[in-house]
């Protein structure tokens, strides 16, 4: 009975006793949720347009952040470095399309998935070769990212808001809104949606698949760059950021692989669930549960809705 009390009553009592702590936890969860959503967005973009489950998204985040910091350390002004990094991501997109995707058209999904694995290894090696394997500081000041914290008294207690977190949430929202507009209002966006619906039909109305792939990989690269800057500013730029990218996977299955709003809402659910779970229930089992909690949430969720929250309904035919 004691364990049941600890698991099902005590955390809620604690929540109602200290609402400010709950608010703080929720806020932190929301911020990391937004950042998970940003990484998940990169996956969704590529999955929608090319049906490739891009495992390399995580390393793209690291690679973009490394390039940015590396260029800055070589003496390039920060904003120019930002542009150059975007250029590098474009080159990467073109190279991936030419070298990896084009020869592998029409292969089974798992083969393409494996190819992005190869890409991951390649980028890990390249990044370490060029920029060295040691962790780096993100150039938050030079990019005019705000620092410091604001403390507000809410619900009878102090709640801290890191300015950086606020900026991250705002920037991520802007990116997401921009992508939404891009997808629904522009010519290229329409083409992208057409490709997502059916490759063959899109080809038959004269949409160049190769071009579209370059565009989505580039867009995913830009999203990766933003995610890299934000995560980098929070926890430093190193190859361990890759693990964070794996956290985007439960976000994906929660939201559905093909849905942009799904990625965002899934990200928020995972971020909040993880932080709240770790804070209130973690001590019960010895802590550290945030490494797997997200996956288990997603797994339980999938048992009820196999296609995720907003995924397209799975229709199977024989």
């Amino acid at each position: 009975m004691d364990i049941l009390y600890k698991a099902f009553v005590e955390p809620f009592l604690f929540m109602s006793e200290a609402p400010d702590l709950l608010l703080q936890t929720l806020w932190e969860g929301l911020v990391s949720g937004v950042l998970y959503a940003l990484i998940a967005l990169g996956f969704v973009l590529i999955f929608k347009a090319s049906g490739v489950f891009n495992f390399a998204q995580g390393i793209m985040v690291v690679f973009a952040a490394l390039t940015l910091v590396g260029l800055y350390e070589k003496g390039v002004p920060a904003l120019l470095a930002l542009l150059l990094t975007a250029g590098v991501m474009l080159l990467l997109a073109i190279a991936v399309e030419r070298i990896v995707l084009r020869p592998l058209v029409n292969q089974p999904d798992i083969i393409l998935f494996m190819a992005t694995f190869g890409l991951t290894y390649f980028l890990v090696g390249l990044g370490e070769l060029v920029f060295g394997g040691s962790p780096k500081e993100m150039i938050a000041d030079a990019l005019y990212l705000p620092q410091g914290t604001t403390e507000l008294t809410l619900l009878g207690g102090p709640v801290r808001f890191q300015h950086l977190d606020i900026a991250a949430a705002v920037i991520a929202s802007i990116i997401i809104a921009a992508l939404a507009v891009f997808f629904s209002r522009t010519r290229i966006g329409r083409a992208l949606r057409a490709v997502a619906d059916s490759h063959k039909a899109a080809l038959s109305v004269g949409i160049s698949l190769n071009q579209i792939w370059v565009i989505v990989w580039f867009a995913a690269g830009i999203v990766a760059l933003v995610a890299g800057i934000m995560w980098g500013a929070r926890s430093g730029v190193s190859f361990s950021l890759q693990i964070i990218a794996l956290k985007a996977l439960p976000v994906l299955i929660l939201g559905g692989f093909t849905s942009v709003p799904g990625a965002i809402i899934g990200g928020l659910i995972v971020g909040v669930g993880e932080k709240v779970g770790e804070f209130y229930w973690g001590p019960l089992v010895g802590g550290g549960i945030d490494t797997w909690l997200a996956y288990v949430i997603a797994l339980l969720f999938l048992l009820y809705r196999p296609q995720g929250l907003f995924g397209e309904r799975i229709i199977e035919r024989i």
Partner: peptide, 23 residues
């Protein structure tokens, strides 16, 4: 260290190569 990095790159490239040549 550099050898280690090159090794990563080559292994990655070879994986892609093998997948393209014989999926």
């Amino acid at each position: 260290e550099t050898i280690e990095h090159l090794r990563f790159m080559i292994v990655g490239a070879l994986i892609i190569f093998f997948l393209i040549v014989e999926p």
